[in-house]
Design a protein around this nucleic acid. Structure first.
Length: 158
DNA sequence: GCCAACGTTGGC
DNA sequence: GCCAACGTTGGC
């Protein structure tokens, strides 16, 4: 099993939105970055666990857990001229962009903030914390995953 | 709203 | 294939 982190701006799509979707499942579309696409296409497998991360908001950080409910398939939003993420260069016969479906598992009991993550030596190599990182989807090692979850019940917030 | 970092585009 | 211009991301 693999572990991941996916970013979303809560003003656009938050963990509450996911929780209230039918089947608590949502296609994660609109990703227009090749590295992120390749991970969805090649590496994200059914049942993989995913941290839901809120970016660009008052409290930036990890807010919950979801799982991959459907493996990579063509991102139809690229074909829709009315869609914000329409890409005329994506040919339906040869789709350029890929999405996966994700399903809500649970909220964390508290937000594990970016600020807090930055204080942890254990996460020195975490992709999220690399300077200038802009990837909206990234792998998380099992060690990192377990460590981050261990912070959830900790009151040792800094 | 600012701005640094970074990916993409397109002229050459 | 280089690289400047441009657009986007995302923390602050």
């Amino acid at each position: 099993m693999n572990y991941w982190l996916m970013k979303s701006e809560p003003d656009t799509f938050s963990i509450d939105d996911l929780m209230h979707r039918p089947q608590q499942t949502e296609p994660w579309d609109g990703v227009r970055n090749y590295q992120a696409r390749n991970m969805m296409r090649d590496d994200m497998k059914l049942g993989d666990k995913v941290f839901f991360y809120h970016s660009n908001c008052a409290e930036v950080g990890i807010v919950g857990i979801m799982e991959v409910a459907k493996e990579g398939y063509p991102d139809g939003s690229a074909f829709n001229p009315d869609d914000k993420h329409f890409d005329p260069k994506s040919d339906p016969a040869k789709p350029r962009w890929i999405r996966v479906d994700v399903k809500y598992i649970r909220r964390l009991s508290r937000t594990i903030t970016l600020k807090e993550l930055k204080t942890k030596v254990e996460l020195a190599d975490f992709t999220l914390l690399r300077a200038g990182n802009r990837l909206s989807i990234m792998p998380v090692s099992k060690t990192q995953w377990d460590f981050i979850l261990s912070l959830e019940s900790s009151t040792n917030e800094r």
